[in-house]
């Protein structure tokens, strides 16, 4: 089943939190809502869950209007940042809770709980209480609880934000695996662009209650359409048209028509190549070693540029370098 969001408008006391949002989540699709805090991504997720009302627009699940359906009748699964396991219930009771509410027979609940505990690779914790588990384990149980009722949609509200870096990476892969296997459409809210790149089939980049761009992770990284997206998804050199015309005229042919100030060129740092050349016009300002890559700040033709290389560029700060950018290395973004 697919979820369709049409012209969704949400205001809080006159403040527009979501400005006529249109979005489709296809069957089996993993969609990430990405954006800085306050961009409306969590509001959108809570509206889909039925935890918040909305002002106008439509919310259709498999063609059926969700407008009058309260959260508890939507049959979705949800996982919050703050684990939110019921402290007074054991792990098994937590996972089986949704089935108990639906009056499923006890044996069926037990079988399903065992099955899910296997799925999350925690078969031995059934009788423990939430406080006896680590954060990562609690979050896996929360995921199992959401899956237990065979939800038609899974909602993940920054599920990894409270975890350590290592656990976060592990659980990230696990969520991805489980979602692929079960094929349940999923919406996840995150402010971590790396998480979105790794997990999503489709990334929805949001800012100030508006969708800036929707696309695959590759689309958003390689072909950002707005300055905000270029800036939010990794680092980039954003170059005004006037400067590009003077300094890099070979990039101009790909520029869409429009006013001088309407578009900027976005060049990712790894597409800026640097070669040592005594007497050249480029100058290295400084050099940062980041393990697998090296980051250089350069002064070139009156601007500061950012470049990244995998090999040792063989230069030291203050030395002269030649700078070049391939003609296809630039995406023009709306300023």
């Amino acid at each position: 089943m697919d979820l369709q969001i049409r012209n969704l408008l949400k205001t809080f006391n006159g403040f527009v939190a979501l400005d006529r949002i249109n979005l489709t989540v296809g069957d089996g699709e993993f969609v990430c809502l990405l954006g800085p805090s306050g961009c409306g991504k969590t509001t959108l997720l809570r509206i889909v869950a039925g935890l918040l009302p909305y002002d106008s627009g439509e919310l259709l699940m498999g063609g059926r209007d969700l407008g009058g359906v309260p959260a508890r009748d939507r049959g979705f699964g949800i996982v919050f940042q703050s684990y939110s396991l019921f402290p007074n219930m054991t792990v098994a009771e937590n996972i089986g809770y949704g089935m108990k509410i639906r009056h499923a027979p006890r044996e069926r609940i037990a079988a399903r709980v065992a099955e899910l505990l296997d799925l999350i690779k925690l078969p031995q914790v059934a009788d423990r209480h939430p406080w006896q588990l680590s954060g990562g384990q609690q979050q896996r149980v929360a995921l199992a609880r959401a899956l237990a009722v065979d939800p038609s949609l899974i909602l993940l509200d920054e599920p990894l934000s409270a975890l350590d870096a290592r656990v976060r990476a592990d659980l990230r892969t696990e969520i991805r695996d489980v979602q692929r296997r079960l094929g349940i459409p999923t919406i996840m809210v995150t402010h971590d662009q790396e998480e979105a790149l790794v997990l999503a089939d489709k990334v929805v980049c949001m800012n100030h209650g508006l969708i800036e761009q929707v696309g695959t992770p590759q689309d958003l990284y390689l072909r950002p359409r707005t300055r905000f997206v270029a800036d939010f998804m990794g680092s980039s050199n954003l170059l005004p048209t006037g400067w590009v015309r003077e300094a890099m005229p070979h990039l101009m042919p790909s520029r869409p028509d429009g006013a001088e100030a309407a578009f900027d060129a976005c060049v990712r740092p790894e597409r800026v190549s640097v070669t040592p050349a005594p007497g050249a016009e480029g100058r290295v300002i400084d050099l940062t070693f980041l393990g697998n890559i090296r980051r250089l700040r350069l002064a070139w033709r009156g601007r500061e540029l950012l470049a990244e290389t995998h090999q040792d560029p063989g230069v030291a700060p203050g030395e002269a370098v030649d700078v070049s950018v391939a003609a296809d290395a630039c995406a023009w973004v709306r300023a």
């Binding site: 039925g50 959260a71 939507r74 979705f76 949800i78 019921f86 402290p87 007074n88 809770y97």
Partner: peptide, 24 residues
């Protein structure tokens, strides 16, 4: 979040009251 989790799992007001609010 606990109340919301119970609601999303299908619990009505009385369930939320009995299973989440009162125990806490």
């Amino acid at each position: 979040a606990l109340e919301e989790a119970a609601t999303c799992l299908g619990g009505g007001a009385v369930r939320v009251l009995g299973d989440v609010v009162v125990p806490v």
